[in-house]
Computed example of a mutant assay.
Amino acid sequence: MKFLVCVKQVVDTSQMEVDPATGRLKRNNANSIMNPMDRNALEAAFALRDQAGGRVTVISMGPPQAAAVLKEAISMGADEAYLVTDRAFGGADTLATSYTLSRAIEKIGSFDLILCGQESIDSNTAQVGPEIAATLGMSDVSAAVGISCEKEGFLTVERQMGDNREVLEMKLPGLITCTGELNKPRYPSIKGILKKEEVEVKNLTAADLNVDAARIGMKGSPTQVRQVRPVVPPKKENLRIEGGTAEDAADELTAALKKLNLA
Rank of each mutant, 00 (worst) to 15 (best):
L209G: 05
G62C: 04
N35Y: 09
K259D: 04
G192Y: 11
G109M: 05
P188I: 10
E181K: 15
A67D: 09
M138T: 05
P36L: 15
S102N: 07
L168R: 05
F154E: 11
R240Q: 08
S148C: 05
L257Q: 02
V199G: 11
G77S: 10
Y187G: 03
L175F: 07
I114Y: 02
D79R: 08
I132C: 03
R215P: 01
E131A: 13
G244K: 08
E252K: 15
R24L: 09
I147C: 05
L113A: 01
V231W: 09
D248M: 13
G180F: 10
R87P: 15
P230L: 09
D19T: 06
N40D: 10
Q227F: 12
V199A: 11
Q9M: 12
V141G: 00
G53Q: 01
S75A: 15
D112Q: 09
T223G: 08
D50V: 09
A256S: 10
I105E: 01
T156K: 11
A68V: 13
N40I: 12
G174F: 10
M16Q: 03
T97C: 11
A249L: 01
V232W: 04
E166N: 10
A92R: 02
C116A: 12
C6P: 02
R226A: 13
Q127L: 14
A134P: 07
V157N: 04
A250M: 14
E43T: 07
G243K: 12
V145C: 15
A92M: 05
Q15P: 04
E152G: 12
R186H: 07
P233N: 00
I33D: 01
P36M: 15
E252L: 15
T13Q: 13
Q65V: 09
Q160P: 03
K219N: 12
I33N: 04
I59P: 02
L209F: 03
V84G: 06
A133T: 05
A73C: 11
A67G: 10
E158L: 00
L262H: 04
D38W: 03
L101A: 06
K196H: 02
S60M: 00
K107N: 05
G174N: 06
Y99Q: 13
D112N: 08
A68L: 09
P130D: 01
P173M: 12
V18F: 06
I59D: 04
D50A: 13
M218W: 08
M37I: 08
G117N: 09
K26P: 02
K8W: 02
K71D: 05
A41T: 06
L239S: 02
M138Y: 12
L48G: 01
N164A: 10
